[in-house]
Amino acid sequence: MEVVVSQTAFNRIRCCVFDAYGTLFDVHSAVGVYREELGDRADQVSQLWRTKQLEYTWLRSLMKKHADFWKVTREALEYAFTVAGVTNPELFEKLMEAYLKLECYPDVRATLLTLKEKNFKTAILSNGSPMMLDSAVKNSQLYSLLDAILSVENVGVFKPHPSVYRLAEKEFDLYPNQILFLSSNAWDVCGAAAYGLKVAWVNRFQQPPENLPFQADVEIQSLNELPELLNIK
């Protein structure tokens, strides 16, 4: 369900902060590179990999047993390979390497460029480790379009812990209502909204919202809609 708001609701926004995985970068593009080698198990591996990757971040946060996202991503792929019955160590390492070079979505560069031209601050706020984010940003040549790359490693706990979203507030010395957080992940949207940031849900795949009391201020289908939302088109 799309949330309709007036453009004036965002007239205080000075900074746009983006989730990385699933929002800027296509998490399924790694398996896409090796789809032929995985055959009919490709989709199963990709979906399980992503599902377990997220579940392990939540579980580790609840158990207070933090490990960086690279380790979590590796553990999740190991699980996916086991369930899918894939036993190919060389392919495993190829997929891990491919995860460092995920494709960015087609709407990313143009949107970031428009924001920079209009003097908005831009940043990534992600579960990703600094090494992973550095690789992804370099691979997509986005460094010149970002003012900051913020990793949960700065606080030692994964989203949706409030301390993660506070990183953006501290980085730019802005009030929460001056920061627009954008994510394609509905659970991430809820976390940012609960913290108090302005939130846009980039609902790329037309998913239903999470059944939680903390929701996005607005729902969009693509980052191409962001300039109009901010009245800078």
Rank of each mutant, 00 (worst) to 15 (best):
P130V: 09
R35A: 12
G85Q: 08
L180Q: 00
D217V: 07
E171V: 04
Q47R: 11
Y143A: 14
G39S: 06
Y165C: 01
L150D: 02
L102K: 13
A123L: 15
E36I: 07
R74N: 03
V164F: 03
G22A: 09
L115S: 15
A98I: 13
Q47V: 09
S129T: 15
L223G: 12
N139V: 04
L142E: 02
C15E: 09
D19I: 04
K65V: 06
T111A: 14
G22Q: 07
Y195N: 01
A168M: 03
C104S: 15
K64P: 06
K118D: 10
A123H: 15
Y175S: 14
S61Y: 04
L133P: 09
L212C: 12
D217F: 04
R74C: 03
Y175T: 14
S135D: 11
F172H: 02
M96C: 14
L182K: 00
V189R: 01
A200F: 00
Q221L: 11
N224V: 10
H66N: 05
G22R: 07
E75T: 01
L182E: 01
S135H: 14
A200M: 00
A20K: 11
V108N: 15
N211Y: 03
N139T: 09
R14I: 04
A168K: 04
L38W: 05
I13A: 04
F10D: 05
L180R: 00
V5Q: 14
V152P: 07
L91T: 10
P162C: 03
N203Y: 02
A80P: 08
S183Q: 02
L212Q: 11
S61E: 06
M132F: 07
K198Y: 00
L182P: 02
P130C: 08
E103V: 13
D26Q: 08
K170T: 10
A193W: 00
V218G: 06
S144M: 04
K233E: 12
V199T: 00
L91M: 11
W58C: 04
V17Y: 06
T122R: 09
G22D: 08
L125Y: 02
F172M: 01
V137R: 12
L133N: 14
Y21Q: 13
A194P: 00
L115F: 15
